[in-house]
Design a protein around this nucleic acid. Structure first.
Lengths: 197, 197, 197, 197
DNA sequence: AATGAATGAGGATTCATTCAT
DNA sequence: GATGAATGAATCCTCATTCAT
């Protein structure tokens, strides 16, 4: 503790502008954890605390609650898009990545149910629809005739159905449920994994 | 001590004990509406206001948030049970009634996702599980070999999946989605209607 | 979600972190006054108002009712301890300081009656006992054979008795009663004054 | 339980006007118990419940909180007066009865400290002073030269002091403390007992 | 005369958001 | 750019008190 009172004493603040990016990432990581634990309504103060920054920093990066949720979801969606755009991608593979995010991120599940609540007029909801549409686009491109889902509407309905089945306290349990749900739908799913995994 | 109406003010109505039953019903109806609009976490004060009663009345009838949610859900579950116990009931018929409640009551949808959140230790969650189990029991009795759902687990998974698909601003839209979901699962569903309908 | 200042309103001052120490002191001073007027159960909102701060500030500095009471009493006790530890201190002198605090602080009187109420299981009570013990310790050290109080138990009993006699609307009246009480007990008391006085 | 469903079934209400007196007594007894357990600020609803009557009955007999406290205290005071007026009464005897009430009734202790709080303008306080004065009168009459208390003022001061010492969770402990306090004051006290005991 | 439901004000507490430093 | 204190509105919940029956 009191071992080497040399440099690391006098450096509580100002790590230079690099801290900004680091803080942003820490906030999003913290948000992910907190969302998973307490849901999307969790106190922002707790997220800032877990990220190890002041509340002001949170507001600098994310002007309001929706912006933070958005950023977190955006990341999930982007990874699904990457999976869809990868060379040699097929529907099963993209669904595997999508399923991974469903089991990882409670916020992401909420996103795919976005049209359930609200009246479509608030910002949060508008954004959610836009993100949801991007997911749809990533999947649509790989729709071929070889399975039971007749079209894009059916496909998104199936995604919503699976996300409704993804419950359980551990990631493993959630994955088990998700796979059982896809099986009930007769849809093939590739390995459940993050896009870069 | 230092509180409360300094007497002799103009008090609004007080219909006496006669109002008790009416108020209870009004509270449950209001709760249903508010739950549908804002979810199970909606402010109790808003429910009382919409029911046209003071907050104290809400607390008299329902000692806490869980008791109110319970009472609302209990009613849904009971109707499903009645459908299951009716003479000549079959799976399709019970699913029709179940689907009706899914389209009517956002709270009921939440119920069937109860195991998603929480750690199973709080009262709200324990009750939800018990209610969920009663729904399962009502369906199980009508499981025959003639469809794609292999057993009770598959059946409840399917219910969860459909409930995940039930989104949309109007009851009609929600019913449309629910039926599409059952169709994707290859499960036959009877007329979507309340038990007594 | 549905709460909080809809932004862009006119906000009152905010002197920034500089105000923290000032606010804390203001809260304790306000608490002292309010305790004296209404007792330890006085509304916290009133204390915040009298201190001229928002209720949130009170909660930031003192997480609960007990913490505030504790802080106020701690200050009283600390002064008695200082009096006891001062060079050349004797029993009469410490009792003078103790008596000063009895006449100043209604909360302090309550403290010395702490064992009257409660079952000793709540925090407030536990703290009170600890503080009470510190007062006892400060007095014990100066017990000599030269007066009617046979031991530490008698001494604390006498303190409790005097505190029971300290009533009256003004500090002067309370001091008069306290001195009369000590006289009835045949105990000599030094000048009634704050420790630094 | 279902043994003899004869007479006692049909008699929930109306015991005739005799019920009134019975209820009043039940309320006062309940108030005594509740005051002892929770202090004078205890919820009135709890007192009504413990008395086994509706809240309305409480208000019929006692228009407000103060009236109930008053009635309870009045009873204590009356017993002390009776002890003072009994043939052959002496100071020690009356003090014994007074001490009994101190150990029995937390409310009574509060009474004797009445002048500590409040500004003397409210009803509660005015009544308390009046009751306190009646106690003083009962004692004064028996003041003789044979002890350390020089006059009526000293006597009431001593009573306040003893009441400040009467703390502890059980009646026995409180009696022990009270007797120790009287001993410290060098005042002889008769047997601690109710007036009729 | 009793019952017990209803009313609604008051107090506790929590957070979203702002802002001086 | 970061910090973290301050603000105060909103929500929860509890009771004192009234009053229809």
């Amino acid at each position: 503790m009191t071992q080497h009172p040399t440099a690391q004493e006098r450096r509580p603040a100002n790590d230079g502008p690099k801290a900004a990016a680091r803080n942003r990432a820490a906030l999003m990581a913290a948000a992910r954890e907190v969302y998973a634990e307490y849901g999307l309504d969790a106190p922002l103060s707790g997220i800032a605390r877990r990220a190890g920054v002041g509340q002001g920093v949170l507001y600098r990066h994310f002007p309001d609650r929706a912006a933070l949720a958005d950023a977190v979801l955006e990341e999930n969606v982007r990874e699904v898009e990457q999976a869809g755009a990868a060379a040699g991608a097929n529907l099963a593979g993209v669904l595997g990545v999508l399923t991974w995010h469903l089991t990882e991120s409670a916020a992401f599940i909420g996103l795919l149910h976005a049209d359930r609540t609200g009246d479509g007029t608030d910002d949060l909801h508008t954004h959610a629809l836009a993100l949801s549409e991007r997911v749809a686009r990533s999947l649509r491109g790989h729709l071929t005739g070889g399975h039971r889902l007749a079209g894009s509407d059916d496909l998104m309905l199936a995604v919503a159905m699976v996300s409704g089945a993804v419950t359980g306290p551990t990631r493993e349990e959630r994955e088990r449920r998700a796979l059982a749900a896809w099986r009930l739908l007769g849809v093939e799913v590739g390995p459940v994994r993050p896009v870069g995994g």
